[in-house]
Amino acid sequence: MEILLAFLIVFAIGLILAVILTLAAHFMRVEENELVKNVRCALPGVNCGACGYAGCDEYAKAVAENGENTNLCIPGSDCVAKEIAKIMGTEYKDVKELVAFVNCNGNCDATTSKAHYDGQMTCRAANLVYGGPGKCRFGCLGCGDCVRACPTGAIYLNNGIAHVNPDICIGCGLCVSDCPKNIISLVPQTAKVWVMCSSQDRGAVALKNCKNACIGCKKCENACPSGAIKVENNLARIDYDLCTACGICVDVCPTKCIHRI
């Protein structure tokens, strides 16, 4: 008899709770915006933040509710942009695919250390000790903070400096913000010519520190037929909107710091 009572009580309480929950779920359902959900499904979901929003959810919300551009997802590139444009019923806009690029070629053959660093092997820590152990105060420290930041494993260390494999890179820019030297930049995937140096030292100093340095001689600036290269602060910079990848700058560079595929 007693077991029956216990059974009934538990059953009754369970039933009451179940009814309350069902009713609550039914009457207090929150209508989720279908568009947001669909856009979110189309996004890759890596939450990299390359679009400028805190994550894929935020971007989906901005697209669906505030009419944000549909071509901001760089990892997803064209196919995601097409998908979102289709969901939103707007015209498809091309995505400017970006890849990360390490603007330094100060490998172990070109430059040496000014001191022996024996601390924690992260770039951030090494940079705190007089700007790192390398002779060039602008160059890659080679401890691999960017390698650890990369969600796709596109960055590898070779001969003391970091390299990006552009085929795997999704252009999220996480490495850019993790590099204490700020030498990683996002360049258009179509770029064919790069300045592999970040040194803003005067030419003689830069060359003394590293054989592969840009010495700011302006030969490339004068040779460029489309005016895409400018030398600022002793460092050549390429404007990729103007660059035609003709390769003249690569040929005239005396230190061979401009590279081409």
């Binding site: 538990v10 309480i13 369970g14 709770l17 179940a18 309350i20 929950l21 609550a24 779920a25 207090m28 929150v30």
Partner: peptide
């Protein structure tokens, strides 16, 4: 039983 349902209920209400 009660705590589990309660938390669920609170979640629905809060949402």
């Amino acid at each position: 039983l009660i705590i589990a349902s309660l938390v669920q209920f609170v979640e629905i209400v809060l949402k």
